[in-house]
């Protein structure tokens, strides 16, 4: 049983630049994930408009019947969101850690072009480790 179902990274204009599935049921092809990512981008923007108080930065946590979606937006507008089991703890920490990995292994990669899909081996390796560590920590709790 996976604690984390999938991870998405979208750039500041809503394009999907990274998607990884960790064992969710059902088929999700590339088009579906692209559409979901850009839909999330717009919903995030609309939620800011509907805020009753000023200074809203968009949805941080969406609680659905069968999953939780945690979203972290960096200062430059890149959004990281993770789909996990309802009530999974410490997801903010994991997202911050993934952001750190992104800055270290993607942004500092001289061959990476900004806002383009992420294809960096080191990022993949370290991300897999981070998610695995999180899963082990969860089993230990």
């Amino acid at each position: 049983m996976a604690a984390i179902y999938s991870l998405y990274i979208i750039n500041k204009s809503g394009g999907l630049i990274f998607y990884k599935d960790y064992g969710s049921a059902g088929r999700m092809d590339t088009n579906d994930s692209l559409r979901l990512a850009s839909l999330w981008h717009s919903m995030h923007a609309i939620s800011q408009q509907l805020s009753p108080v000023s200074g809203c930065t968009g949805i941080e946590l969406l609680q659905a019947d069968t999953f939780d979606l945690h979203c972290f937006q960096s200062l430059t507008g890149t959004k990281f969101f993770v789909v996990c089991e309802p009530g999974t703890p410490h997801m903010e920490g994991l997202l911050k850690h993934i952001y750190e990995l992104y800055t270290d292994y993607v942004l500092k990669n001289p061959f990476y072009e900004m806002e383009m899909p992420i294809r960096c081996e080191l990022f993949d390796v370290n991300l897999a480790q981070a998610v695995q560590k999180d899963r082990v920590a969860l089993l230990g709790r």
């Binding site: 179902y5 999938s6 969710s24 049921a25 059902g26 579906d32 559409r35 979901l36 839909l39 999330w40 717009s42 919903m43 609309i46 939620s47 509907l50 969406l62 659905a64 019947d65 069968t66 999953f67 979606l69 789909v83």
Partner: peptide, 23 residues
């Protein structure tokens, strides 16, 4: 509109359901 679209997003994203149909 936000609620309507979020609902179609969650219906498509649902990681426990095998047969989800299109977005």
């Amino acid at each position: 509109g936000l609620l309507f679209s979020l609902k179609s997003l969650t219906a498509k994203m649902d990681p426990t359901c095998v047969d989800k149909g299109n977005l």
